[in-house]
């Protein structure tokens, strides 16, 4: 029982994360798009990213919920979390300036805390991929 719960923990945590992340981005669409506009790397693509990221997060959530599609959900989770992680690393190391949050768009975490958070969830997605039960051969 305990083992089963532990095996399902990555899927549960990732589902909560992507549900929250996608809904908050859609509810605050203008703010999210404005944040993308302010980024030195995404300013030219903010229109498409502002929709595609929450849409992909919602698809990931749906895939994670059902056991039959959960492995695909883990792959997508890994891709998204790695994308967010490498993006923050690039902002911190390759951008000449770090976008300011002055004027009201204030995140709860700073960039370094976001990086650690994202690395943790990237590893969680990897854990999900490699601990997901293999199909038993008949």
């Amino acid at each position: 029982m305990l083992k089963k719960s532990l095996l399902e923990l990555p899927a549960v945590l990732l589902t909560i994360l992507f549900t929250y992340a996608s809904i908050s981005k859609l509810l605050q669409y203008n703010t999210f798009r404005s944040q993308l506009d302010q980024s030195p790397f995404t300013t030219g693509y903010s229109g498409i990213i502002a929709w595609s990221i929450p849409a992909t997060e919602l698809i990931t959530t749906a895939l994670l919920i059902f056991p039959a599609t959960r492995l695909k959900g883990f792959y997508l989770s890994y891709g998204l979390m790695l994308l967010f992680t490498v993006y923050i690393y690039a902002i911190l190391h390759y951008s000449y300036f770090i976008p300011c949050s002055c004027g009201g768009i204030l995140s709860r975490m700073n960039w370094e805390q976001h990086l650690v958070f994202n690395i943790t969830f990237t590893l969680l997605a990897l854990t999900g991929i490699f601990t997901f039960p293999f199909k038993s051969k008949v």
Partner: peptide, 25 residues
């Protein structure tokens, strides 16, 4: 600057007007 009235958002929002480049740091 995007007016709050136009966006309906409580946040202060801006959009780039062309390629956005930081010039004087």
């Amino acid at each position: 600057y995007l007016s709050m009235i136009k966006t309906g958002s409580s946040d202060i929002l801006y959009k780039p007007n062309g390629t956005r480049m930081l010039i004087n740091y």
